[in-house]
Design a protein around this nucleic acid. Structure first.
Lengths: 346, 346
DNA sequence: GCGCACTCCTTAACCGGTTCAGAAATCTCC
DNA sequence: GGAGATTTCTGAACCGGTTAAGGAGTGCGC
């Protein structure tokens, strides 16, 4: 790989060929006033002939915007690989970035403190023009950092978690409530939930909502909740422990906080000789294609993760261009019944 | 989000505080000779006190290296979300990048031509210092582009596919052969393979290897091969069509090119009332956690995707620092027998 | 005492753009 | 036809670093 000395073509070459100054070329390419239509056209033609495009690096240095947005994701690598959610989310974000010829700077981190430091160095080094923040926890340091730096960000999470930052969020509480009501309507009176990481803000929201929804049922129902780390293994363990009890002490329906755990739950039921949905109903969250690949297929609270990512990216651009803080709810996940839920037969 | 006018601290501030010139600071931070130990120390102290770090943008513009590597991935968004492989691969790449404070620029593209254009604009715009190339096809335009540009790249794929670029690859042919021999040793004589996208180079390699391996069996065996798009749906369709034949015309073992399709195959078998592994054995590829979550658990050709990503990243750095083309095989996937494979009982 | 090599540091040009003050040319209006 | 306003374009400074050339000071040999 001998580095061919690629003859870099710069703004100067374009200017020379169009017979104007560098400044004129810059004006043309930034669609700023002060150039005749003829000159503008001549400049564009020259640029086209030379195959020139302005260097983002130089642009950034010269003080204009930065065409890169950051995303730091904080989960152990093994889990990330498994969660369909993120890749789909990223692809949604990308779809919007591409339109504005922006790029995504991705980094896996091990905690919010590391992420906070990363945001600071990204921003101070002018590496990013804004950032997407996910996975909020209690006492999250990131809102304070973003505010201190003046870094444009959009937070993915309920406004109660995101410290006043512009946020985009799904109404998890309503979705959980709907799930519980649905199961109750099927006749379930012993309902469990295998939740995500307890430290995560949205897990807390779902936990509370689940609690409230079950409490509101009439006739009253019995409820269980378990926290996990979102991994399939944890989902399997939780399911196993829930289902080992004898029937009257055993849930007849289980709600999972993601689809991986639901898949794991399904296989645990099979391994224990329980029929799904006759002996136990299973309901997943984050409906990915995975839910349609199991047998029986998994009922799920589904939402458009790709579209969600796109919304987040669009909102980030609004923030970057100076819109005030806001809260953008996206459609509540809707229940998609499939083969894993039915009235209890026991 | 009123952008606080963050007072940017630059190399000039550090120089002033240390009582030296900009040049000296630069020398210190690039560990170049020509500074006394005392001065060097004084400069670092000043930088530390001011919380300064050199701006990557300015560094790039000034002609030194670029601390970003590119990765363009070309699959429909829906599939990407599902394939555990990529996220895990990315996390492996990241693990190495972080050590060298590099970042990953990620982009989803729709074809190699789009990717080739992207590489060119990334490189000419000095946005990346090198790139990782995945998913090689016949007549892939990317090697030529990389060579023409002098862009340092590392190709993920067998040397026969990557047009002389430095490549990192798993020995798929051997792995496929091993899979076939294993199934044959269990007693299978009717073996099918649900392959990936036919246009992909490594799919072709596996197809040929499968063919050869089956042909070499003694006593002779019957073989089927189907191409898919890697999606679970396609895997399900392929499985369904393979298993609808009457027993003597039906494979007793199926090998899948990724784990998603194997999961889908498992559920199709269940849906058709076939027992796994008694009626049909299933063998996955790209062993992710998913394979341990099904019931029965999926036997798989497993390899360390995270480590693979790390190897690729390390190799890219070698290329960037000027090593010649090379070929770096990584360990061949090994067979991990689990519950989905057994001697045929029919 | 002088030339010479060596160490340590500074100076200034440069990377490839943006931006703004102001010059040159054209238009407007009386 | 000339003052003033407007349009169009240029020149130079600047962003925050890197780097090559060069200068000041020191030590050494003879």
């Amino acid at each position: 790989m001998t580095a061919t000395p690629t003859p870099r073509v710069t703004i100067k070459d374009v200017a020379a060929r169009a017979g104007v100054s560098k400044g004129a070329v810059s004006l043309a390419f930034n669609r700023k006033p002060g150039l005749s239509e003829a000159t503008r056209e001549r400049i564009f033609r020259a640029a086209r002939e030379l195959g020139w495009a302005p260097s983002p690096t130089a642009r950034t240095l010269a003080g204009s915007r930065v065409d890169v947005v950051g995303l730091a994701v904080c989960r152990p690598a093994r889990l990330l690989g498994l969660e369909p959610f993120y890749m789909e989310f990223v692809s949604g974000v990308e779809s919007v970035l591409v339109e504005r010829s922006c790029s995504l700077l991705l980094r896996l981190v091990r905690g919010q403190d590391e992420e906070a430091g990363l945001l600071e160095s990204w921003w101070r080094g002018r590496q990013i023009g804004g950032s997407i923040l996910v996975d909020f926890r209690a006492d999250d340091p990131r809102p304070a950092v973003a505010r201190r730096l003046g870094l444009p960000v959009v937070a993915v999470g309920h406004p109660s978690l995101t410290g006043g930052l512009t946020s985009v969020w799904t109404d998890d509480a309503t979705a959980v409530t709907e799930a519980v009501r649905y199961l109750a309507a099927l006749g379930h009176r012993r309902i469990a939930r295998v939740g995500g990481a307890a430290a995560l803000g949205h897990t807390a929201i779902r936990t509370a909502a689940f609690d409230g929804a079950v409490r509101a049922l009439e006739p009253p129902a019995r409820a269980w909740q378990v926290a996990t780390d979102f991994s399939g293994d944890a989902g399997a363990r939780a399911t196993r422990s829930l289902l080992t009890a004898a029937p009257p002490e055993r849930p007849t329906a289980i709600v999972y906080d993601n689809d991986i755990m639901a898949v794991a739950g399904l296989s645990v039921a099979a391994e224990m000789g329980l029929r799904v949905p006759d002996d136990v109903s299973l309901l997943a969250w984050d409906d990915s294609q995975l839910c349609r690949l199991t047998h029986p297929t998994l009922s799920a609270m589904s939402h458009d993760v790709h579209g969600f990512g796109a919304d987040v990216a669009r909102t980030l651009f609004e923030v970057i261009t100076g819109e005030g803080p806001g809260s953008h709810p996206v459609p509540t996940p809707v229940l998609t019944p499939r083969g894993s839920t039915a009235p209890p037969k026991v």
